[in-house]
Design a protein around this nucleic acid. Structure first.
Lengths: 367, 367
DNA sequence: TTGTAGGCGTTATCAT
DNA sequence: ATGATAACGCCTACAA
């Protein structure tokens, strides 16, 4: 039995080490086992060509010592330059994606020193062709890993297949697609996010009037997003003891036309709250404010500048933060740490659902 | 003029590199400048003993190339085993600190592979002597850096002075103390956190009755905490157009005695909301629930198990999450990355103020 | 002022 | 099956 050289005592669940800490290297193990570094290395990497006796002795030693390879040395030797690509919608076409660029910039800054290159490619969220073309561009860069937003299901599955064949690791964010070719997904539980909105609405609604769920449809499909949120919202009220007359769903196709919205609001005079399932809530807020429907509480998504302005002036009660910036950042970081340090990538990361009001909004915009 | 070997084109604000990426080393620079590695190294580290001509040539080259030293190699050479100590209140005495242990465990796990050791020492939050003693223990471990909770101002300044003399870097969390001996503080803006509570209260209160701010005093001093939160809460309502009869402050010295609380509630029949400035809100919730004061909204702090139970059954409307886990984790990470990779430590990190209700609480408990 | 040699821990190759 | 050796990029000591 190998005797541990480090003296320590156990205090609660924390190890308190006293005195110098010895860091064991392959060389130390080799000396203790009476073999050469090469043999130890063969055991560590399970390359075989080691006698039974040596194998057992070294394995035991490694365990007793809790040997941790020196990451720095390993990486120095491997000395790889990794390339990771990001594929996401162009934020100039849909501002929802804007914060992602900051997340990517942060990742670039942090990872540059480790010799990891990050290339971003943007596609037009209204064009499947643009999506496919961008994937060709990415293939041309032969990356080691990819972070992508699988906005279009059919097309995504197509390109995912290709990446899978080439052995390129893929992490997705924001849009969930079920596929074994995806290593990781970073996003939110949309059903639960609908429930959060419902609970907030339940808390703040002034009267027992009707509630409306408004889907402001983009040209591209985030239909599943909106449906999940609606399902969550309704499920809360179906369980709740709160008295609610009615929950009306309203799909708005042409967000530009204020007239449609106005007539909807006129038709439903009994409205006490509106839940907007997308970031386009500012369009509703504009009308509510102009017409001074001061007893209608509205709740929606995302910290667009327009939305935050209405949040601060009290027109919007709450916004739910989907944290696109963090979503993009986390995907990149997970992939990089896997490539660099062989860290395991979790199958899924569900970010917390942040509730934002006028008073706590500031740090969420900055971070 | 040195010509950059990497071809790239600029797409929006992102650099898209095309083709292989060359990683420049000191050796490359040396060859390009027609000098030896040693000379380049001297320029990089500004150690002097370099001719004017060589200095200029190399400096220009480094800039043109945007030379990034290989962190792995640098660290391998330095090959330091760093020790970081954490000093925080014993979570078995005050459960508020419990999540910190998870944050510390995460940091330990992540940093082990980099040869960084983290030792945790706990003190009794009711005893300044325990605090001072623990600091002696830490000094005995001669750490490179310390993360500490400066619960007691006077005593903290004392030990901070000592750490400063010894050149030990100190990061603090949770309790803010103004001192040049502190390199970093991780925490929340408590004034703003009071404002967040006020805004929530404003949203949910059912009637125009009175509001109460309840400070449940611990034996030890977090008086400043509570005062700041009260200041924020009052400032919101002083600016607000909402009609509020009165805001009463109530200091509760002996949290055990339910009688005091009950009589307070009986005396103030007009109460529509209570803001509890500490994590002891479950004590209030218990009474509210038992007596069925269903029209009193209560808001407080921290995700203790008792609090979360009352949140889920609707007795507590909102909890504000101070994220002690993240606070501890971040301090450690900042220090470690500074020691390992020479990363700069920001003077202050203010964590976002998380609003928690029954529907979004789950991921905050897990993370 | 400048260049060279050696070593950090790991890994891969080549002899033995 | 095993051991010796060189190399990754950086840094330092020492020699020139």
């Amino acid at each position: 039995m190998f005797e541990h050289k480090n003296k320590y005592k156990l205090l609660n669940y924390f190890h308190i080490f006293v005195g110098m800490i010895k860091k064991y290297t392959i060389r130390d193990i080799a000396e203790l086992a009476g073999v050469s570094k090469g043999t130890v290395d063969r055991v560590i990497h399970k390359r075989g060509k080691v006698s039974q006796k040596a194998y057992e002795k070294i394995t035991k030693l490694l365990e007793d010592i809790d040997y941790q390879p020196n990451i720095m040395a390993r990486n120095l030797k491997n000395n790889n330059v990794y390339t990771i690509c990001v594929l996401m919608p162009n934020p100039e076409i849909d501002p929802y994606w804007k914060p992602c660029t900051d997340g990517i910039k942060n990742a670039i800054r942090e990872l540059k020193a480790f010799g990891t290159h990050i290339n971003t490619v943007l596609f037009d969220p209204n064009s499947t062709k643009s999506f496919l073309d961008s994937n060709e561009t990415i293939l041309g860069m032969s990356p080691d890993a990819i972070v992508l937003v699988p906005l279009f299901k059919k097309e995504s599955l197509l390109v995912l297949e290709k990446y899978n064949e080439l052995g390129i690791i893929v992490s997705t964010f924001n849009n969930h697609i079920d596929s074994s070719t995806i290593t990781n997904f970073v996003g939110q539980d949309l059903y639960q996010s609908g429930r959060v909105a419902a609970k907030l609405m339940d808390n703040i609604k002034k009267t027992d009037g009707d509630l409306a769920i408004v889907h402001i449809d983009e040209k591209y499909k985030n239909a599943i997003h909106m449906q999940e949120k609606e399902r969550g919202f309704r499920s809360y009220f179906s369980e709740s003891s709160s008295f609610v007359n009615n929950i009306i769903t309203y799909k708005l196709k042409q967000p530009e036309s204020e007239i449609q919205l106005s007539s909807f609001l006129n038709k439903h005079e009994n409205l006490t709250g509106i839940f907007v399932t997308t970031s386009k809530i500012y369009q509703i807020a504009a009308i509510i404010k102009k017409k001074s429907y001061s007893n209608i509480s509205i709740i929606g998504y995302d910290l667009l500048h327009e939305n935050v302005a209405y949040l601060k002036d009290g027109t919007i009660a709450f916004l739910i933060h989907q944290n696109p910036k963090q979503q993009a950042y986390l995907g990149l970081k997970l992939l990089a740490e896997h490539l660099l340090f062989d860290k395991e990538i979790p199958n899924q990361i569900l970010l917390p659902i942040d509730i934002i009001n006028s008073e706590n909004v500031k740090p969420f915009m900055e971070n």
